[in-house]
């Protein structure tokens, strides 16, 4: 998903060289270069490219545990369309993204602005903010299960502001926001780093000039900092949306998709259909839907980035 500079300077260097020597080099380097790439490329074909292709093909078929394959055309997709469970999973996935992505980006921007200036402890704060990113999602899930439990801190906070005490993870209304909040906790630190990197590029002269003109903090942010941050924000939207579509580990530990499918995401239904129901073809179709969603996000990125530059 990274935007990548893939222009190849190496190939242009060679043009100036003399024909014969060049030919000899290519043929010699030919198999040596291949020998360096081949080990990982074979692994790539066997365990990444092949299975991806297989995943798409599988969605048009029915594969049994016993090992036989039967082509089914579009039947798996017809099932998807007729299956209320699928539409629920799609809705849950999108709602999860709609809650977690904006919160992640707002938190990341705010904390990056807060700690951008050199002051004592700024580095320490940044390190703390990144800590959840390197923490395993399973650990996050285990701890937050306790945090959201009726005896846990979250319920106490709710109680103190006059909310009824319930376990959010057992409520079909609040379970999804709860797991999405955990998603924010695990991701915002990454955004902070991205934002800090971008903030360094904000021209200081502009901000100083604005300060001289008597612009307040909010105005300086709106008019000078925010426009500079736009590419970073957009990059984060794409990355975090893609990430949120794939949320699984925390949901597995915290709710198992429940209560009553309230946190049953597409990835969770893919997992269930394949490894609990062993309905591989149908799960393949869900995988293709996930792929298409990712492509849509990437496409939007292209369109908007195209406009920006």
């Amino acid at each position: 998903m990274t935007t990548v500079d893939t222009r190849d300077r190496g190939s242009r260097d060679g043009d100036a060289r003399q024909g014969n020597a060049r030919k000899r080099r290519i043929s010699r380097g030919g198999w040596i270069g291949l020998a360096f790439v081949l080990p990982v490329f074979v692994l790539f074909l066997a365990f990444r490219f092949g299975p991806a292709l297989g995943g798409v093909l599988l969605s048009f078929a029915n594969y049994t545990v016993g090992g036989s394959l039967e082509w089914k055309g579009l039947l798996n997709y017809q099932r998807l369309i007729a299956d209320p469970g699928f539409w629920n999973a799609l809705r849950v996935t999108l709602v999860y993204a709609l809650i977690s992505v904006p919160l992640t980006i707002v938190a990341a921007t705010g904390l990056a602005l807060l700690t951008r200036r050199a002051f004592r402890g700024a580095r320490l704060y940044r390190s703390v903010f990144f800590l959840p990113v390197v923490t395993s999602l399973i650990l996050a899930g285990v701890v937050f299960t306790w945090i959201f439990s009726v005896d846990g801190p979250w319920s106490s906070i709710l109680e103190s502001v006059g909310f009824p005490v319930t376990n959010w993870l057992e409520s079909s209304t609040f379970a999804l926001p709860a797991v999405a909040l955990v998603g924010v906790w695990t991701r915002f630190g990454y955004g902070v780093l991205i934002m800090l990197a971008k903030l360094q590029e904000v021209p200081k002269e502009l901000e100083e000039a604005a300060l001289m003109d008597g612009a307040g903090p909010w105005q300086r942010f709106r008019r000078i900092v925010l426009p500079e941050l736009r590419p970073a924000i957009f990059f984060l939207i794409v990355i975090e949306t893609t990430f949120s579509f794939q949320a699984f580990d925390t949901i597995y530990v915290m709710t198992s998709g429940g209560p009553v499918d309230a946190t049953y995401t597409l990835v969770f239904s893919l997992y269930r259909e394949s490894f609990a129901n062993f309905d591989f073809g149908y799960a393949g179709a869900i995988g293709v839907v996930l792929f298409v969603l990712t492509l849509i996000v990437a496409l939007i990125q292209r369109i908007v980035f195209g406009k920006e530059s």
């Binding site: 074909l45 066997a46 490219f49 092949g50 299975p51 292709l53 297989g54 093909l57 599988l58 594969y63 090992g67 036989s68 394959l69």
Partner: peptide, 10 residues
Amino acid sequence: RKFLTALTVG
């Protein structure tokens, strides 16, 4: 038809 031959670069 077995899956291995049909689907993967086995």
